[in-house]
């Protein structure tokens, strides 16, 4: 119970310290900002140790036998090589695990993008032009793609298609911006709600 109260007071103090930036930059804000970065980094290190290195590498190396045990040396060595960046002369060795990571990322990403994004999205755009929504969607996709077709200078009637594409892009930006405003307000509501309910207990 007492731990919860202390936690709430610390959280409230840090919230006010961060919000104090709205008045002007000050040492309290800087302290809270640095504390957040430090705690996040520390938390990340603990999580990687507790949920990844220890159970997946160290514990398995102790428990496993034969090939399953020794194969674990491969990721362990690759991981250690990543740290070679800190040592100038052997820094180039870090390219090996980086190449491995980039290779896996590209391999997984390319297939996922085609199978999971490009093809289903194209398929979902092939719609019968029987409703207003479908017409807007198809026209929007075509004119937006045309806008990004830079190999030819569009003149005459084609110019209007490009302008229509810009309108669709602007509407999309507007929707994203509107959502972003809503999200930021939600964060402010969350913090004020915390201060009024959990800390001051007046609601």
């Amino acid at each position: 119970m007492i731990v919860n109260i202390i936690g709430t007071w610390i959280a409230a103090g840090l919230t006010i310290a961060i919000l104090s930036f709205l008045y002007k930059d000050n040492p309290l804000y800087k302290f809270a900002e640095h504390l957040y970065v430090g705690v996040s980094a520390g938390f990340g290190v603990i999580y990687v140790w507790a949920f990844d290195l220890k159970p997946m590498l160290i514990d398995r190396f102790i428990e496993n036998q034969g090939v399953e045990r020794w194969i674990l040396l491969v990721p362990a060595v690759l991981g250690l090589l990543m740290l070679s960046r800190w040592f100038g002369k052997i820094g180039y060795l870090s390219r090996l695990p980086l190449a491995f990571t980039v290779g896996i990322g590209a391999g997984l990403g390319i297939t996922a993008s085609i199978q999971g994004f490009l093809l289903p999205q194209i398929q979902a755009t092939l719609l019968p032009l029987t409703t207003i929504n479908n017409i807007i969607l198809v026209v929007g996709v075509i004119t937006t793609i045309l806008y990004f077709y830079f190999s030819r200078d569009f003149k005459g009637p084609f110019k209007y298609l490009l302008e229509l594409g810009i309108i669709f892009i602007m509407v999309s930006f507007g929707a994203s911006f509107g959502y972003t405003v809503m999200a930021r307000i939600s964060l402010l509501i969350g913090r004020i709600f915390f201060l009024l309910s959990d800390w001051l207990r007046i609601i």
């Binding site: 289903p120 999205q121 398929q123 979902a124 969607l137 999309s172 929707a175 994203s176 959502y179 972003t180 405003v181 809503m182 999200a183 930021r184 939600s186």
Partner: peptide, 14 residues
């Protein structure tokens, strides 16, 4: 979140 949601609507439509 509101920031991410607009990017996810195409998945919903598809």
């Amino acid at each position: 979140t509101g920031v991410v949601a607009p990017d996810l609507y195409p998945y919903l439509q598809a």
